[in-house]
Design a protein around this nucleic acid. Sequence first.
DNA 1: AAACGAAATTCACATAGGTTATTGCATCGA
DNA 2: TCGATGCAATAACCTATGTGAATTTCGTTT
Lengths: 242, 242
Amino acid sequence: MTSPFVQKLRHGACLTEEDALLLDQLARPVHVAQAHHDILMEGDPPHTLTLILEGWACRYKQLDDGRRQIIALFLPGDLCEPYGILPHFMDHSLGAITAIRYARIRPDEMRALARANARIEEALWWDMLLQSAMQHEQTVSFGRRLAAERLAHFICELRLRLALVGLADETGFELPLIQSQLADAMGLTAVHINRTLMELRAAGLIELQRKQLTIRDPEALRNLAVFDPVYFHLDQRKDCNG
Amino acid sequence: MTSPFVQKLRHGACLTEEDALLLDQLARPVHVAQAHHDILMEGDPPHTLTLILEGWACRYKQLDDGRRQIIALFLPGDLCEPYGILPHFMDHSLGAITAIRYARIRPDEMRALARANARIEEALWWDMLLQSAMQHEQTVSFGRRLAAERLAHFICELRLRLALVGLADETGFELPLIQSQLADAMGLTAVHINRTLMELRAAGLIELQRKQLTIRDPEALRNLAVFDPVYFHLDQRKDCNG
DNA sequence: AAACGAAATTCACATAGGTTATTGCATCGA
DNA sequence: TCGATGCAATAACCTATGTGAATTTCGTTT
């Protein structure tokens, strides 16, 4: 079984078996965190990068009056910070959504590996390109998409991200977020998430029960979202041949 | 006169005179673009990084029905893409807001320079950290801040960014955006930007006439925005001595 | 100074989404 | 079996922001 980290990075560059091994060796030892617990809090010195191995986590900020915004979701294989630098102090928190397994990686080691291995370096840069492109789409969603479009886009993007690490197929995936977490992730309220979910259900686009999201009509969902996956830059990889 | 690029990067790492020279030599030749013209359009192959030398530019996306979202503003000294990688095809457009002067830099040259010079590498990573932190704040703004808070935050952030390159002081700066551009940048409509601007004026926080933004009450503005500049990570630089 | 066009301002009205509260339904531990 | 508890669903009402016009101001050109 290849790790989700390697599995994801292979979409950005051609990695050999040896490259895969080098990456996986960095990702030790394995740590765990319980659901709803913080891995890092705003103001903490991070010391290491965080790599999610299993489960879901998120980057979030909380305003003084309690308003909370989830800035990014992290799935298996996701690096929670750009690989080359750590801030002295966190300007946001990193929280586990489900129970998670994760690794802590020192950025100087990551940098040394990238410097020594052009394929790995390429893969890591591609990953940053994708992270940043997803941030851009999020700005577009929050700024200009209606709730239903926004939710549809979110589902399409999540499905593709999970598919890259073998955790989703055409028909759906496991979505471990409750509606208030969805709300915090989408810049809406829980009540409105509920309404919008109902709307998508009524339109026959999705189903969602017991944390299992089923996409009933993929094309209609993509159309509503105007989801175009070019921003994943899956064309960046040179052909991997012998 | 040090270039705005070097001037900005000096906030992220200690650069010698020689480092500054190396960076400035990369940034040649100089190109120009007229106000309102696109430098790169969605779908174009970019070939080079874009470095803004003078004037304002922006990253934006346009939806099919005309809705437009400005994703980021680029000021003098700003690199419009992460320095180490270019997508094969742009997933967004890059447009000049004012007339601009800019340089085109090949990412392999940028990477080579960073690899050869640890101070420059550090500075570039800090710049990426800042870019990404600003994106996070934008998500918080769009998701959870009311129009007046959002606008106030935007002004505080812009002022600080411009101050880093000597283009703003405590009292204000030149803001070359018309209200419909402000609207596209903040995920609001021009009418509501107008209302909100009026509100901030009426509260005695700002003035804005003939593209000159004056901050009348900096503290009140910061309070309204709950603006905390820790996310600029201005503490990252090791002390620069002898 | 007149004339023009772009931008700012204002108005009346519409609506997407927020707020607060209630209900029902699982699940779970005692 | 019985409350707790957490979450989904829904309802009634509210408000921040959007929409689609005027109308006014202002900078620029003639």
